[in-house]
């Protein structure tokens, strides 16, 4: 019961900060609202007993991506810039499209019986413990993820090189 109330509070906070992130006039405010949404997601992962993903979420998203976004905003926006205003027609169309999308999703969820189904069969509580995830990542067998894991490290290296090449000044 307490977990349920906690879930509702976290879900509400996540939705509110997500809405703030996409509607804020000042782009810096939306980056700050993004922190709220990501932090709520980390708490939700803890509730779903996925500790490793929760920690990775905080480290990579809040500590890395959002700080990076804030740096870029500060580098590229001039103080006193007029707030961006999308045409009203575009906003109305986007709102209608998104409402239809959400309605379709929820309808499908309802038809599949997920919203009335109250059984809460859960996986073993250590399903995402550091030990299990580490063993699966480095398992070279058919069930393991060793090759994707190594490819991801290669991808990160390529990304670092690519980002430096793209962002450097021309003629240097």
């Amino acid at each position: 019961m307490i977990a349920d109330i906690g879930f509702y509070i976290v879900a509400f906070a996540m939705l509110v900060s997500a809405i703030w992130a996409v509607t804020a006039k000042n782009i810096l405010h939306s980056a700050l609202a993004l922190i709220g949404s990501f932090f709520g997601t980390a708490i939700l992962y803890l509730m779903l007993s996925a500790e490793f993903i929760a920690v990775a979420q905080v480290l990579v998203y809040i500590g890395g991506v959002v700080i990076f976004v804030i740096f870029i905003i500060l580098l590229t926006s001039r103080l006193g810039d007029k707030a961006e205003i999308a045409p009203a027609m575009r906003k109305i169309l986007a709102f209608a499209l998104c409402s239809a999308m959400l309605g379709t999703f929820l309808h499908a969820l309802d038809r599949a019986g997920y919203l009335v189904n109250t059984k809460t069969a859960t996986a073993a509580s250590d399903f995402a413990s550091m030990r299990n995830i580490g063993l699966r990542f480095l398992d070279p067998g058919a069930n393991g993820f060793l090759v994707p894991f190594e490819i991801i490290s290669l991808l990160l290296l390529i990304t670092v090189i690519g980002a430096i090449v793209i962002a450097r000044k021309e003629g240097e």
Binding site: A3, D4, F7, A11, M14, L15, A18, I19, A21, V22, T23, S37, L44, M47, L48, E84, A86, R90, K91, L93, A94, F95, L97, C98, M101, L102, F105, L106, L109, Y114, L115, V116, N117, T118, K119, T120
Partner: peptide, 24 residues
């Protein structure tokens, strides 16, 4: 906290993100 509520929350966040991507 059931699977259905978690999925509904994820759908809500996805749709909000889609709205932002269309209007920003």
């Amino acid at each position: 906290m059931t699977l259905g509520y978690c999925l509904a929350l994820a759908f809500g966040l996805f749709v909000i993100g889609a709205y932002g991507a269309m209007t920003r």
